[in-house]
Design a protein around this nucleic acid. Structure first.
Lengths: 196, 196
DNA sequence: TTTACTATGTTTAGAGCATACACATTTGAA
DNA sequence: TTCAAATGTGTATGCTCTAAACATAGTAAA
């Protein structure tokens, strides 16, 4: 029987289980409870078992953070695929990004937490890559010059990421964001892009 | 003699000394070494002495973070005062913000670190307030409608803050920012604002 | 000046966390 | 079957945060 996983000496897939537990914690309380001991306990394993799969607590945290970023990138892709039209598709990327920050503040903050250790592999998919694909489409449609892709990408990412962080309340600054605020921001970003 | 401060049982101004030590640490290594024990040691005081001035390590960190933000706000004000013309002055705010992030990455990351504890008082001056003053000036000059100030403020802040974080390398994403990148970003922001 | 109160530091001690080292169990390949 | 590699446990060290009790210095009133 595969359906009942008896409790064995060997866990079976501890690495994945730890990351998943970390994501659950992140969802509930952000960066706070991502320690080795806490996560080990949450999957019923001794703290030292973690080190068979991660070289340090920091690298476990980095893996969790990476997974959260990939989660975001997936949602962006899905949002873009769900609508048609170059502009709508591009706008959907920004909406998905901000929606993620607002509905999953814990995951969002973990996704962009500064880790001492770099992630083991590249993000797959990466939010940055998804954005670039969207911008290439703008380019193909003649909405912006090929030479402008770099700066447009930096501008779009910056605006949306900055707004997400602020709206999210992550930073010790200011009020909440309404759907109108989000819409207006994306309008302004679009204006900036076309004006280039 | 005031010039030689003999080592006394009472420190004299421990609260300020701790925050200053924290800022020095932040400048050197960001968020890493802002613990109670470490900072206490760096001003030659026992760890418990800290708690006569801060209710917890978190609240000390919050005070350091606040001081870093005020430092940023001061630089923005100074930059704005140094140039003339509404547009130049507004642009100088963004330049100062990004320049701060790039030249003082440690302070910048501490300034916007998520603290469990809210700051004891309001930021004074606050970067947000300085920005709003700049935007009011745009409004007074008839460059934007009074009704647009809110969304323009959110847009400008978001773009510059997001760019600063990304350029800073704080986030686990992408390459460096050149002066041209910065200039282009501010151009795009300006376009977006005027298009509103 | 003496006394007493308040502010500010120190010492001691306990809890929690990261992690090095030695040991135990399981798995899988020869 | 047998043994080496992979994976997990237990124990121990050293770090941090912080509570409690104690010590010293500054200050104000008698």
């Amino acid at each position: 029987m595969e359906t009942v996983k008896a409790k064995k000496y060997h866990h079976g897939n501890l690495e994945e289980a730890l990351v998943l537990a970390g994501l659950r914690e992140a969802q509930a309380s952000g960066t706070r409870n991502l320690g080795v001991t806490h996560l080990a306990k949450s999957v019923s394993v001794s703290p030292m078992a973690v080190y068979r799969h991660f070289s340090s607590g920091e690298s476990l945290k980095a893996a969790i953070s990476q997974n959260a970023r990939e989660n975001l990138a997936h949602r962006m892709q899905a949002a873009a695929l769900a609508v048609s039209g170059t502009r709508n598709r591009f706008r959907a990327l920004g909406e998905a990004y901000i929606h993620f920050a607002l509905t999953e503040p814990g995951l969002f903050s973990v996704a962009f937490v500064a880790c001492d250790v770099p992630p083991a592999r590249e993000d797959d998919p990466s939010a940055w890559g998804v954005l670039q694909a969207g911008i290439q489409e703008l380019c193909d449609d003649g909405l912006i010059a090929q030479s402008a892709t770099e700066s447009v990408a930096a501008f779009a990412w910056s605006s949306v990421h900055g707004f997400a962080m602020l709206a999210n309340g992550l930073d010790p600054v200011r009020p909440q964001a309404t759907p109108e605020d989000i819409s207006k921001l994306l309008d302004l970003v679009w204006d900036g892009i076309l004006g280039a």
